[in-house]
C-alpha cells in the first residue's frame, strides 16, 4: 500500500475517533476541554510506545508506520484545537484556566511521551531511540 494512502485511511479513523470523543464529552466555551485533553494524552502515549517498540523493528513496513503514526495517531491528536480553545477561554476571561490547560497538556504530554518510549523500547528489548528519524515514515 502506498504510504500516503495509508495516512489517508488512518486519518479518516483518527479524525472519526476524535470527533466521537468530542461528541461524547462536550464542553462549554468557558470550560475545560476534556475531550481534546484525553485524546492528546492517550495518543501521545501510544505514539511513544510505537516509536520505541514496533517502529524499531526492521521488518515493520513503511506504510504501517505512516498509516498508524502520521495517519491514525497523528490526526487523533491535535494542536489546533488546543490553541483554538485557548483563544476562546481568553475571550471568556478564563485566562487562568487556559494557562492550566496549556501547562497540564504540555507537562502530561511530555511525561507520557517519555513513558511510552521507555515502555515500548523495554518491551521490544531495544535501547530508546535517540535519533529523530522524522522522514514522515517514523512519526
Amino acid at each position: 500500500m502506498p504510504p500516503s494512502l495509508a495516512v489517508f485511511v488512518g486519518g479518516l479513523a483518527g479524525t472519526g475517533l476524535r470527533l466521537a470523543l468530542d461528541t461524547a464529552l462536550p464542553h462549554a466555551d468557558g470550560g475545560f476541554p476534556w475531550s481534546t485533553f484525553i485524546a492528546n494524552l492517550v495518543g501521545t502515549f501510544v505514539l511513544g510506545w510505537l516509536a520505541g517498540g514496533l517502529w524499531t523493528r526492521p521488518s515493520t513496513p513503511a506504510w504501517m508506520k505512516a498509516g498508524m503514526g502520521s495517519g491514525l495517531v497523528g490526526s487523533f491528536t491535535t494542536l489546533s484545537a488546543v490553541m483554538g480553545a485557548v483563544a476562546i477561554l481568553d475571550r471568556e476571561e478564563a485566562t487562568a484556566l487556559a494557562a492550566v490547560y496549556l501547562g497540564a497538556s504540555l507537562v502530561a504530554g511530555l511525561a507520557l511521551a517519555a513513558a511510552g518510549l521507555k515502555l515500548g523500547s523495554a518491551l521490544a528489548h531495544r535501547p530508546m531511540p535517540t535519533e529523530v528519524t522524522d522522514d514522515g515514515a517514523t512519526l
Binding site: 486519518g11 483518527g14 479524525t15 476524535r18 470527533l19 468530542d22 492528546n40 495518543g43 501521545t44 501510544v46 505514539l47 511513544g48 516509536a51 503514526g69 502520521s70 495517531v73 497523528g74 490526526s75 487523533f76 491528536t77 491535535t78 494542536l79 489546533s80 484545537a81 488546543v82 483554538g84 497538556s105 504530554g109 511530555l110 507520557l112 511521551a113 517519555a114 511510552g116 518510549l117 530508546m128 531511540p129 535517540t130 535519533e131 529523530v132 522524522d134 512519526l139
Partner: peptide, 26 residues
C-alpha cells in the same frame, strides 16, 4: 474546517514524542 482539516493537519503527539527524542539524544 476546524475539527476536520485543522485537527488532522496539526498534531500534538508527534510534537511531544519528537521533543523527548531530541532530549534523549542530548
Amino acid at each position: 474546517l476546524v475539527t476536520g482539516f485543522c485537527g488532522g493537519l496539526t498534531t500534538f503527539s508527534t510534537w511531544c514524542v519528537e521533543t523527548i527524542e531530541l532530549a534523549d539524544g542530548g
